[in-house]
């Protein structure tokens, strides 16, 4: 009895684990089935056009992916772009979060800075590339700048909204305990704004990743955008599409990563829908 019960429980746990994997696998197959239709349509159109420069067949693209992966070229450029994205996101967050906190907390700061932000925000990062080429030349600095610029605004606006949206009652509760203003900011406002901040970070990652190709297409000697441009000049469309696919996959993985971070840092926000 004494040994039987834990063993049975362990078996249950394994069974639950297997079930979960099966359900995951089933979801994956449903996903594949949906994608299959996409690939079939693509294959038909490719066969119809029969011009491998305009539109190569899915098989040619898969072959290119396999070959580029085997050469590690795919991962080399992906790693560089990913590192640039992480770097630019860190710079962007370091600039945008403190500014957002200040703008959200102080009406005066908000009113002074807001007009500048609102004028700059609609200008796409791409519009700055010619000017940035003069200033930074070709190298790491240009894509870093463009990607930081792209990620900055979503993070800033999300931080401001998060700070302004903090439940008034939580601040009141802290005030009635006699807690000083500064401690309220660090111990109530910031943690309460953290879930919106994580959403802002997600949007920032998406924006800065979208800018990667444009920034590297012209301004960098390496990275996914550069590789796309390089193989375009060689008219190697399967390779071009392999890198484009990599951009999509890596962007999706980045989003999953930020969501995992959000679950880790703000378990109360993703765990339950009902706010206490």
């Amino acid at each position: 009895m004494a040994t039987g019960a834990p063993a049975a429980r362990a078996n249950d746990r394994i069974a639950i684990g297997v079930l979960r994997h099966l359900r995951g696998a089933a979801a994956f197959f449903v996903y594949l089935r949906t994608m299959l239709a996409f690939f079939v349509v693509w294959a038909i159109i490719a066969w119809w056009t029969s011009n491998s420069v305009l539109l190569p067949s899915p098989l040619a693209v898969f072959a290119a992916i396999g070959q580029l992966a085997a050469d590690l070229e795919l991962f080399f450029h992906a790693g560089i772009s990913f590192a640039r994205m992480v770097g630019s996101l860190m710079i962007g967050a370091l600039l945008a979060i403190p500014l957002g906190l200040a703008m959200g907390l102080s009406r005066t700061v908000g009113e002074v800075v807001d007009p500048t932000i609102e004028v700059l925000r609609p200008i796409s990062g791409i519009a700055w590339i010619p000017l940035a080429l003069f200033i930074f030349g070709i190298g790491n600095a240009l894509p870093l700048f463009i990607m930081t610029y792209a990620g900055f605004f979503p993070i800033l606006l999300g931080t401001i909204a998060g700070v302004r949206g903090v439940d008034r009652r939580l601040i009141d509760a802290a005030r009635t305990m006699g807690i000083p203003q500064r401690t309220i900011v660090t111990r109530v406002v910031i943690p309460a704004a953290l879930p919106s901040l994580m959403v802002a970070l997600r949007l920032g990652v998406a924006a800065s990743w979208t800018a990667v190709v444009a920034a590297e297409l012209i301004g960098a000697p390496s990275g996914l955008g550069y590789a796309v441009e390089w193989y375009r000049e060689l008219l190697a469309t399967p390779q071009v599409m392999a890198f484009i696919a990599m951009i999509g996959v890596l962007g999706y993985l980045c989003d999953l990563g930020v969501r995992a971070l959000a679950r880790l840092f703000t378990p109360w926000a993703s765990d339950a829908r009902s706010a206490p």
Partner: peptide, 15 residues
């Protein structure tokens, strides 16, 4: 701190 308040919607810190 001499006057403690209990709020209708609890106002607990969710984190």
């Amino acid at each position: 701190p001499a006057r403690g308040v209990m709020f209708q919607d609890y106002a607990l810190f969710p984190w």
